[in-house]
């Protein structure tokens, strides 16, 4: 190892970070090189310059001064409690939006008035609705008043006979 290589790893050597076989090479080089020994002393002096610091007691009233300035902190809520309210609000908003989107075409289409509804014709020349009302008339529990009203809407001129 030459001086450049030694100087590169000398800081690691001073803190004992080198593997033993590498440290042995460094030791052998240092034994013969005054320049590198000088650098080693400078690194060791740096460590000595830094400390150790004497540990000193903090002022007695320091904790009281700190404590007086600690704002109370709300205890942390579980994640589900933090997030459930916004989640429900978003879900509700989404549901309303979907409902509006689905209903929109229905709200926009013109609703035909009852007289314009197509009436299916039967083979005998009577309408489908007339045939249904006539069939229902003979049922034991038929609501004759409602059926007569329906017939009056479909065929006003014949409805008087059925009601009588």
């Amino acid at each position: 190892m030459d001086c450049a290589e030694i100087l590169k790893i000398l800081p690691d050597y001073t803190v004992g970070a080198l593997e033993e076989h590498i440290a042995a090479h460094v030791r052998a080089h240092l034994a013969e090189c005054e320049s590198c020994r000088r650098e080693l002393r400078a690194l060791e002096n740096t460590g000595a310059l830094l400390g150790p610091m004497p540990a000193v007691d903090a002022p007695r009233d320091l904790w009281a001064a700190i404590q007086a300035q600690l704002e109370p902190r709300a205890r942390r809520k579980p994640a589900w409690r933090v997030y459930w309210k916004p989640t429900v609000a978003v879900a509700a908003a989404a549901a309303i939006l979907i409902a509006v989107l689905l209903a929109w075409p229905l709200m926009q289409a013109p609703v035909p008035l009852t007289p314009d509804l197509p009436v299916l014709a039967t083979a005998e020349g009577t309408s489908y609705a007339e045939a249904q009302i006539a069939g229902a008339w003979d049922q034991p529990l038929a609501d004759e008043a409602s059926l007569a009203l329906a017939m009056a809407v479909i065929e006003p001129e014949n409805s008087g006979e059925m009601i009588q």
């Binding site: 800081p11 690691d12 803190v15 970070a17 400078a42 002096n45 740096t46 310059l49 830094l50």
Partner: peptide, 25 residues
Amino acid sequence: VGTVLSRLARGREALRIKLAPYVEE
């Protein structure tokens, strides 16, 4: 520990340069 030693070595190397007037003989 290896990381501690490495940081210690690099830190000491940097300080040795900055504090040259006080540590060089």
